[in-house]
Design a protein around this nucleic acid. Structure first.
Lengths: 221, 221
DNA sequence: GATACCATTTTGGGATACCAAACTGGTATC
DNA sequence: GATACCAGTTTGGTATCCCAAAATGGTATC
């Protein structure tokens, strides 16, 4: 494992896990000492994370990207476009048995599962569903979009009801895919993405004061 | 202008302009001497171009990404998803007068314009059309996809008829956008992308021997 | 007390030195 | 002639050094 991957993976985990807060300043020297690497791999890692939207330039320096409500809304529109395209492709496949793997993944989560598990499975559902399409670009688009959404989903004040609703919607989408009903799958997927976005943005909007109090920069829509 | 941008822009131009052939090996030291920069900015530039898909790793080293026919086909599907989503958003806007700027851009190309001009305008049409949607992610997706297509479009043996057809299709799409007919715009845009892809892939497939003879790596579909 | 100014420190951009791994070319062996 | 092997070279990965610009903090001035 090269130092660059070390820093890239470690720093990404810190950012996605909110160990460094959105909006926080980062210095190359701090990262250097934090991971015991020199500045060369640190800079390489920062350049990569910049393309993922997890860090951004702040004048000359680096900043952990703030949570941006306007961006979250735009991402939802983007997701709708690419995820619906992907699921339609998947429905057109002859062999759609792979959906069962995703169903098993969903079912591995139950009431006793930790929050982290629900969080991860909720993202992987969309990523793996896109992967089934076989289109590398649609897949990467979904994966990258979910990465950008990851922190916001952590911050969302999720009630149990929302988790259960998402779980049911995911299953309904898979059921449509299993039968090859592209229109039904697309309709349900669209509704799911739009609904999730609304709940997420509303929740973050209501909580933005508390989040800022925790040192998390939240940019309004 | 920082050295990193220098190298990034210069190397991107060399790759897109086919001054370095698809599949060609690149060494950091060669780029270093070619642009009079040290390895630090060279590495930063390579990392960026890697995310654009213009260079890729080849074991430990770097390679100018080969032309990949399978990738071209997948990109077309991806483009269809994001461009259609973007144009539908644009049709839903109240103020769509900005399409006139794009029409003027198209009209700036005539029979006397150099090939480079047609090439650039043909890409910018799609990029600027996506920009009108106001969705940053859809815009970036289209821009990045067109960047990846750029070299293949150069290699395509274009007859005048194909240029004229694309020009007419572009105008027809804009006409539909101007009247706000989202379905019509989407239909025409879809057909245009699919048709362009077919011509492009067919042309490259037929020419792949000649291209390989020129030292251009072409990966089959 | 507010502010303008200057010395100091910090920071990112870049250049270079060093190293280990991979590659190359030639040679010796069969 | 083919092949195994070895020394020399090249290459990317990393660490470190230098520099100019920006941030910082203290001080003098009003």
């Amino acid at each position: 494992m090269s130092q660059m991957q070390n820093v890239e993976i470690g720093l990404r985990e810190m950012i996605l896990g909110l160990e460094v807060g959105p909006g926080e300043r980062l210095t190359e020297r701090w990262i250097e000492s934090r991971f015991g690497a020199s500045r060369t791999p640190v800079r390489a890692a920062l350049l990569r994370l910049e393309t993922e939207g997890l860090v951004c330039r702040d004048g000359r320096g680096w900043t952990v990207s703030p949570i941006n409500l306007a961006e979250l809304e735009q991402i939802a529109v983007y997701r709708e476009a690419v995820e619906v395209a992907a699921v339609k492709l998947t429905c057109a496949l002859e062999d759609r048995t792979a959906v069962e793997i995703i169903e098993a993944m969903l079912d591995s989560c139950d009431a006793g599962s930790p929050r982290e598990e629900w969080h991860r499975v909720g993202m992987d559902f969309h990523i793996e569903l896109a992967r089934l399409s076989g289109n590398e670009f649609l897949f990467r688009a979904v994966r990258d979009a979910m990465t950008r959404l990851s922190r916001a989903r952590w911050l969302e004040v999720r009630d149990e009801a929302a988790l259960g609703r998402a779980w049911a919607e995911h299953h309904a989408i898979l059921a449509a895919v299993r039968t090859g009903d592209a229109d039904e799958a697309a309709r349900r997927l669209s509704a799911h993405i739009v609904g999730s976005r609304d709940r997420l943005v509303t929740s973050l909007h209501n909580d933005r004061r508390g989040l800022r109090a925790r040192g998390f920069a939240v940019v309004a829509a």
